[in-house]
Write a protein that binds this DNA or RNA. Sequence first.
RNA 1: GGCCUCAUCGUCUAACGGUUAGGACACAGGAUUCUCAUUCCUGUAAUCGGGGUUCGAUUCCCCGUGAGGCUGCCA
Length: 484
Amino acid sequence: MRTRFAPSPTGFLHIGNLRTAFFAWLMAKKTKGSFTVRIEDTDRAREVEGAVESVLRLLHWAGIAPDEGVMLDDAGKIIEKGKCGPYIQSKRFDLYRKYADQLLKDGHAYRCFCTSERLDEMRKKQEKLRQAPMYDRTCLELDPAEVEKRVAAGEKHVLRLKIPREETITYEDKIYGPMSFKGHTVDDQVLLKSDGFPTYHLAHVVDDHLMEMDLVIRGEEWLSSVPKHLILFRAFGWKAPEYAHVSLLLNPDRSKLSKRQGDVAAEDFIKKGYLPEALMNFLALLGWNPGTEQEMFTIPELIEAFTLERIHKSGAVFDLKKLEWLQGQWMRKIPAKDFADRIKPLVVARFPDAENDASFLQKATLIQERITFFPEAPDMLGFFYDDPTVGIDLIANPKQKVEAADVPKILEILKKSLESIEEKNWIKDSIVAALDAAIASSGLKKGQLLWVLRASLTGRAYSPGAYEVAEILGKERTLERLSI
RNA sequence: GGCCUCAUCGUCUAACGGUUAGGACACAGGAUUCUCAUUCCUGUAAUCGGGGUUCGAUUCCCCGUGAGGCUGCCA
C-alpha cells in the first residue's frame, strides 16, 4: 500500500501531525508498501525558512523516515527520491495548470473574476440572512465571449470547481464509516488562485493520483472537504484513493490541542529528553488500541498490531502523565551500556572527571531506574565527583530515628566497622557483612546506621543505596566523608 | 447560523444485545526497603439526559444536551 504524509512548511511539526504521519507510515510498513513525503508549499506567504529540514529531521528521529519523496540523505541534506517526482508542489506548477485547463475545457470548472472585496460583502449579506456563506455563482453566468475578452485583457481571476448541486456524494471512510454530503451544501471551491498556484484541493487530487496513493490518511479537519475531492477525481476520470480521517488531539479542556496550553511542537518533546520509543508508543495509543491489554509497544510490534479499524473516531486528550510513565518504562529498558553512553556527555559537561571514570557504567546503572529523563543524570551522580557538603540537619532525621546528639557516636561506629575491611576486600558483600555486625553489636537499628552512612556519603536526602555508593567510592573516600 | 462528526472512570481506553462494566495512567492506602525510585498488592472512580425497539440495552433507532471540525484566492 502506498501512503503519504504531506506537511506544509509553515513552521514546526505539530505533534498531532506526527501522529497522523505515524499512522500512515505504519500502514505502509504493515502492507510492505511505501511511505512518501510530499511538501505542500503552495502558500508562498506562509512559508517558513528551514521548516522542511526540521520536519524531515523529526521524522528520522521518530524512526519513520520516508521511503520515497522528500527526505534527508546520509549527510543530512534534503533530497528527492522516487519515480513520481518532483515531490515539492512548487516544482509542479505547470502540472496543476495543465490539469486545471482540462477541467475548464470539460466544463467542470469556471473562471471567476470576483474580487475579495465583493466576496466579503457577499458573505456578510448571506450571514445576515442566516444563509450558509457560499459563492453565489455570479461568474458562472458570464457570457463566454466576455470571459474570453477579460482573460485576454489580463484581468485577474481564479478557477472554481463547479459542484453538481443536485447530487448527493457518498463514500466510506476507513475510520468514520459511511459518509454522505448533499451537493447544494458544498461550495464551488477555488482550485487555482489568481497567482496561478493551486489550492490544497486541486493539488491533493492531482498529486495523490499521479503519485499513485492507495490510502490518504489525514486529519479530521479535511472530512468536510472530501466531496470536493471526490468530485474532482471523477471529473478527471480517476479512481479516488481510500480515505482515513484521523481525529484531532485535544487540550485538557477538550479544545483543539494548541500552543497556549502546552507543548505541541514535536521538537519540544525531543528537547525535554523524551525517547522516540516512548513518544511514538504514546502517540500510537492515543485514539488507537490493540484490542489487548498490552501497553508497551516497540515499533515492529506496532506494525504487526496496527489496524485502521481500531482507531477511535473521537478526539483524544493529550495526557502528559501517561507519556511520562511510558518514558520511565522505556528508560529502564535501555541496555545498561547504552544508558551509560547516553548520559555520559551530560555528566562530563558538569563533572569533567567523569570522562575517564573506569566505574562510570557501574554508577550509571545505579540511577537508571531512578530517573525519567537523561538530563537528570548529572544531579543524581554529582556526589561521586564533588565532595558533598553535609549538614547535620540532613543527617539528623526523626523519621529514621537519628538524633543530632547521636550522630558523632554513629559516625564512630561506622568508621570503626568499615576500617576493619581490608582494602582489597572492599566489595559490597564485605561492607554488608561488616555493617551487619556493627548493627548487631551496637544495638542500633539498621536504618539509623545506614541513613547516616548514606547521607554522609551523598549529601542528599535521596540517592542510590548506601552499600552501593560506599562500594563505588572506595574505602579511602568513604572514610574521608565519614570524618567530617 | 448552515453542513459534517463525536460522546464509557479525572485522562487514554476494552466490552461489536446478556460481564460483579475490564485494563492502563493519575490519585489514595499497604508490602518490600537505609532514602528516593523501581517492583508488588489493595482501593476510590464511568456508560451525558429523555424517549423508544427488545425477554434483556454501554451496545440498535429517535430527540435533546455537550464537544469538535468545516464554512478562506490557508493547509
